[in-house]
Design a protein around this nucleic acid. Structure first.
Length: 482
RNA sequence: GGCCUCAUCGUCUAAUGGUUAGGACGCCACGCUUUCAAUGUGGCAAUCCGGGUUCGAUUCCCGGUGGGGCUACCA
């Protein structure tokens, strides 16, 4: 059985890069007819953030990802939270001690940092000097009996470690360049390296698909698998997602822009996000650009994953989002827009429903949050009219009043209230009566929206409805007559 | 510093031992037009550098350069 996992640490929000990793794991699991597992790696007590796990899961669900096993749904390989599996890691760490593949280390933090400083001063690679490997068995026993704090370190064997990465091919690393990695910390928690290997093995994970920052650690993992006598899974290391300066997208450098939820809050659609994220490092063999999840599952493959990092470009994301907004039904879009209409609705005129506004705005929105600014005219109970704006450059106040009166009269006479008909009828009449379009429509636009830029005058008219349109024209005329 | 890794338009990327190096975003121009958008048409724009192999290299090899990652009792 093919089994893949996504294993975030609950140290904050869901990172964009993590979301992409989760997506790829999910897609590949589906593609291969396997299972997708969620595991929480909370082995760092200091960086643990309360509530983070819930927000990460919420982010994954928002994207439309589903998992067969995980902390919220359970499963037969549970528990799926590492802090609940501590005895397991301890057991395997002890096994490694017994077999001689690992050793106790009693070095203090201060000794280690001194050692590191010395090595750096001499321009040497900082690494543990194996002082505690030379301890006699009696000495170790004595220190353990005295309850001295200790860690357990992996004893990196001599030789060369070779492994295959699905995306990058064969890797060969000289073990002498690897430090004796801590496996079990002095607080009794495992480090990532131990916990990850134990869990991936016990949970029968077949493919490890993760970010390329793990590539250098993979050697340690292979050594660990060998020491425990286990078969290693397949590895695939995804290229990083980069910021504009080509550095790995990170909270420190990029702030909230690294969080998936930032985009959710700004009004990006999950459909657009999935499509865009899928294209961060992967590309189909043809030129299709729009993919929903089933289509991605169909087309996805690790063979087509890029090796080089990809810059996260929100311009393209915006374009995707605008396209997805256009694809939505008006009713669907209207529903998604309610959160952004709400503040306007609370303060404005009574509005029975917002479907007409949504229809008018649909082709003009890149992200949903723009609806608040772009839709303000619709809700306004009293427009703040600027006389100077109302009177266009080409005509004077008297002529502007005439234009508004004319348009108002046409609206009063209008029978069927249909967007296309309003437009053709009024334009035909205006032409017959000798009204240059611009002279007529500019004042009307301002009268109805209070704005310089707006959607098509006739769409605005239609969206507002007969009554409100007449009222606003009347108010504008009043302002000009003052 | 050491180890690892990567390299096609500004960005995401396609393709190939022989192509006018393709698409998309963005940008520019034009069209539509009552404004702003949307939309349509067109345009600008790339194989990091140097050697080799080869009839021929952007593609294969080597070296450089540049970027990135790792180098924690963080993941």
């Amino acid at each position: 059985m093919i089994r893949l996992r996504f294993a975030p640490s609950p140290t904050g929000e869901l990172h964009i890069g993590s979301a992409r990793t989760a997506l790829y794991n999910f897609l590949l699991a589906q593609k291969l007819g396997g299972e997708f597992i969620l595991r929480i790696e909370d082995t760092d007590q200091e960086r643990f953030v309360e509530g983070s796990q819930d927000r990460i899961l919420a982010g994954l669900k928002w994207l439309g990802l589903k998992w067969q096993e995980g902390p919220d749904v359970g499963g037969k390989y549970g528990p799926y939270v590492q802090s609940e599996r501590l005895t397991l890691y301890k057991k395997y760490a002890d096994d490694l001690i017994t077999s001689g593949a690992a050793y106790y280390c009693f070095c203090t933090e201060s000794r280690l940092s001194e050692l590191r400083a010395e090595q750096e001063a001499k321009k040497l690679a900082p690494r543990y000097d194996r002082a505690c490997l030379k301890l006699s068995a009696e000495d170790v026993d004595l220190r353990l009996k005295k309850s001295e704090p200790f860690v357990i370190r992996l004893k990196i064997p001599e030789g060369t470690t070779v492994f295959r990465d699905i995306i990058r091919g064969e890797m060969s690393i000289d073990n002498s360049t690897i430090d004796d990695q801590v496996l079990l910390k002095s607080d009794g928690y495992p480090t990532y390296h131990l916990a990850c290997i134990v869990d991936d093995h016990l949970m029968e994970i077949t493919h490890v698909v993760r970010g390329e920052e793990w590539l250098p650690s993979t050697v340690k993992h292979i050594i660990l698998y060998q020491a425990l006598g286990w078969t290693a899974p397949e590895f695939a290391h995804l290229p990083n997602i980069l910021n504009k300066s080509k550095a790995k997208l990170s909270k420190r450098k990029d702030g909230e822009a690294v969080w998936l939820q930032t985009y959710q809050k700004q009004g990006y659609l999950p459909e657009a996000m999935v499509n865009f994220l899928a294209f961060m490092g992967w590309h189909p063999s043809d030129e299709q650009e729009f993919f929903d999840i089933p289509e991605l599952v169909e087309s996805f493959s690790l063979e087509r994953v890029q090796k080089a990092g990809a810059i996260f470009d929100t311009e393209k994301l915006k374009w995707f989002n605008a396209q997805y907004i256009k694809k939505l039904s008006v009713a669907d879009l209207d529903q998604r827009l309610q959160a952004w209409y709400a503040p306007l609705m609370a303060m404005g005129r009574p509005v029975a429903n917002t479907l007409s506004l949504t229809k008018v705005l649909q082709s003009r929105l890149e992200i949903l949050s723009e609806a608040t600014a772009n839709g303000a005219w619709f809700f306004s109970s009293e427009l703040n009219l600027d006389k100077n704006l109302l009177v266009s450059a080409s005509i004077d106040t008297a002529e502007t009043i005439k234009a508004l009166e004319y348009f108002k009269q046409k609206i009063v006479e209008m029978g069927e209230w249909e967007a296309g008909k309003i437009k053709t009828d009024i334009l035909a009449a205006a032409e017959a009566d000798g009204w240059p379009r611009k002279n007529l429509l500019w004042p009307v636009r301002v009268a109805l929206t209070g704005e310089k830029f707006s959607p098509d005058v006739f769409e605005v008219t239609w969206g507002l409805g007969k009554e409100v349109t007449i009222e606003r024209l009347y108010q504008a005329i009043k302002v000009l007559q003052q």
